[in-house]
Simulated assay, not measured.
Amino acid sequence: MQTQLHQEISLPEQAGYFTVPGAELYAVLHQVPDPVARVLLVGPFASGRHFSYHPWVRWARYLAARRIEVLRYDYRGIGESTGVFEEMSFENWSEDVQLLADWVIRRSPSVPLVLHGLELGAILAARCFHKGTGDALLLWSPPANANQALRSSLLYWAGLGQLNESPENRKTVSEYIRQLEEGSFIEVQGYQWSSRLWRDSFHFDLPATMRDESSCESYKKPIKVIKLGKEAAPLVKSHFGNGEARDFSCLYSSNYDWIAGALALSHRGMQ
């Protein structure tokens, strides 16, 4: 199996494809000379990519400007990556995180790796970290399980339908859920959700040892969990949010400070 970025060229932001079983992941490497750390960004689920894209990219660039190399990517079957979304599973997406993290580590094993996840991506990053990968873990708004993330997306989608669809085409959240429970597919912002995905989401959990600050101490590695509020939209979904651009410099700076402190980057040549 080929596990490398294709079309490698010397550019500050190197876009390419990473081979995983049965698909190609679209990935962007924010390269920096002599990095003091690396971060793997694991973004939100499906349509959440659209909401978070610009602040997520700015966060990657913010870190790269401070000598932290960043790899961000689209999930298998989502965004610019290949693969059929309705055939994907949470285990497929977990495998993607592990393969990418392993690739990042092989680039320079002596450089510390931070796994950073947003919403559903926080569960994926946390489960990878729980298995022993990475030197630090940063989670933004992790749900307790994947079903919470799916319900949030479904609530938003149903709300849009109530505003924009004709009365005969409107569906409530409960109607969508009933279709899923009956074994049908439903379309949510361009993605076909399967009943299997919905069923599996109840059991795809954040590790129990990461659900409170005291239990996180058992890992003996730095872990930070932040619950982002509605003011963080569009980085996180806000019901009926307008998606306007916001200044996230305070969020970026405080989280960078945590990464720098957690990894003691001052001892690695940071100014």
Rank of each mutant, 00 (worst) to 15 (best):
D257R: 05
V114H: 03
R178W: 13
L40R: 05
P33W: 07
K224S: 12
M1L: 11
F240W: 07
A233F: 00
L41P: 00
F202N: 10
Q192H: 12
H130A: 13
E168G: 05
Q189C: 10
E217W: 05
M88A: 15
R199T: 15
M210N: 00
L160S: 10
E182I: 02
G121K: 00
F185Y: 14
S10H: 09
P167C: 07
A260L: 02
F51I: 06
K237E: 14
K171L: 14
R127M: 10
P143H: 06
N169Q: 14
Y156R: 08
E182H: 05
N145A: 11
V104L: 15
Y256C: 04
A208P: 00
Q192T: 05
Q31I: 04
G190C: 07
V70R: 06
C216E: 13
L120D: 02
V114G: 00
N242E: 07
W258D: 03
L29W: 13
E91I: 05
N147C: 15
E187Q: 14
Y219N: 04
L150W: 08
G183W: 04
W258C: 01
G159C: 03
V188T: 07
R178V: 12
E165K: 15
G121T: 00
K220C: 12
R66H: 05
A64Y: 01
F129W: 02
E231P: 00
N147G: 06
V97C: 04
E217D: 06
A232C: 08
T209S: 15
E181F: 07
Q4T: 14
F51L: 11
Q4G: 05
G229L: 01
L29D: 11
D135Q: 15
R107G: 14
C216I: 08
R49K: 14
V32E: 04
W56K: 01
P167N: 07
D247V: 01
P109D: 09
S94E: 14
S215G: 02
E13N: 06
R49S: 13
T172G: 11
K131M: 11
S47L: 10
